[in-house]
């Protein structure tokens, strides 16, 4: 565990906390894409199939449980909570899940570390995580007034990915035989998807203006 990896995980955790804060305290999910949240739940469910069979560390198991629990409860809140669900605008959140799920599944069947159920599911989860933010980014573009918490949520998610890249660079130079093409390429694609958002996020921050993405 290096400082970049820890900072990445903590940023990821912070993004989830910001979203839970918005949902729990403000009782609103306005501007949040249910599609993206459902994809994340699927990402964690398929990636952490090893949670009860393989042990890495207490830290690892705890974080897995947190990400599984939080992602499924966020989906539950948006879909079923009496007050929160009212702020969900279905007509704006139109991205189709299967446009992302099916290509990722096919790619996972072709490109994986080993052709076993667990490894194919793991590769699928890596590919799906890379593109799971797309429905959220599309929704942001359609939202005229992006509130601060939503902006911070997406910013923290992007920052988590950028820190993971630093972690890989660090591990590549400090560990022997540390080469992971699947995670590297997907992680790079995932981080690049945030580039446009980052640009406007920093612009709005610099000029002290409300965040708005050009349509």
């Amino acid at each position: 565990m290096n400082i970049f990896r820890l900072a990445g995980d903590m940023t990821h955790l912070a993004s989830v906390l910001v979203l839970l804060l918005k949902i729990h305290t403000i009782k609103s999910c306005a501007g949040i894409s249910l599609k993206t949240q459902e994809l994340y739940a699927l990402v964690f469910a398929t990636r952490y199939l090893d949670i009860f069979t393989d042990f890495i560390s207490l830290y690892n198991t705890t974080m897995k449980l947190i990400f599984l629990g939080s992602s499924f409860s966020i989906v539950w809140y948006i879909r079923n909570h009496k007050i929160v669900s009212r702020s969900y605008d279905k007509s704006q959140d139109t991205f189709r899940h299967y446009f992302l799920i099916i290509p990722c599944l096919l790619l996972a069947l072709l490109v994986n570390e080993k052709f076993t159920f667990k490894e194919v599911m793991w590769a699928f989860s890596i590919y799906l995580e890379a593109v799971a933010i797309l429905p959220q980014l599309v929704l942001l573009q359609r939202t005229r007034n992006i509130d601060n918490l939503t902006g911070q949520y997406v910013f923290l998610l992007g920052a988590y990915r950028a820190l993971y890249i630093l972690n890989w660079i660090y591990r590549y130079f400090t560990e022997t035989h540390y080469v992971h093409w699947i995670t590297w390429v997907s992680g790079l694609v995932q981080t690049l998807l945030y580039a446009d958002f980052f640009y406007y996020y920093f612009e709005s921050w610099k000029n002290n203006k409300k965040l708005q993405l050009p349509a």
Partner: peptide
């Protein structure tokens, strides 16, 4: 429970 060094990232 077995200790693995495969996918140690989250």
């Amino acid at each position: 429970l077995k200790v693995v060094d495969g996918h140690d990232e989250l």
